[in-house]
């Protein structure tokens, strides 16, 4: 299964209800609370449902969740190593 940067950004924008994510993928997600604890739960569930990847948060450097771009990069890399 392949996933594009656009797929990930669109999923994030939908979960966080924030269109800015699409135009500014380098925006900060954590301190700004755009990705709050509830959207974090939704995000991991969606990643599992749609891409079949079960992310263990303790196995990931938390910096990965700092921007939409870093989340997309991480997911794309994970899927490449899987296939």
């Amino acid at each position: 299964m392949t996933v594009t940067r656009k797929d990930v950004l669109e999923m994030l924008a939908e979960i966080c209800e924030c269109d800015e994510i699409l135009s500014a993928p380098e925006m900060e997600l954590l301190d700004s609370n755009v990705l709050d604890s509830l959207s974090f739960i939704l995000l991991l569930n969606r990643i599992d449902d749609e891409f079949g990847i079960e992310i263990q948060p303790t196995q990931v450097d938390f910096a990965v969740f700092k921007t939409p771009q870093s989340i997309a990069d991480h997911l794309i890399k994970l899927l490449q190593t899987q296939s």
Partner: peptide, 12 residues
């Protein structure tokens, strides 16, 4: 309960 949900995301 929300915090427990967050913790449960991780199998460990």
């Amino acid at each position: 309960p929300s915090f427990a949900q967050l913790l449960l995301l991780d199998q460990s």
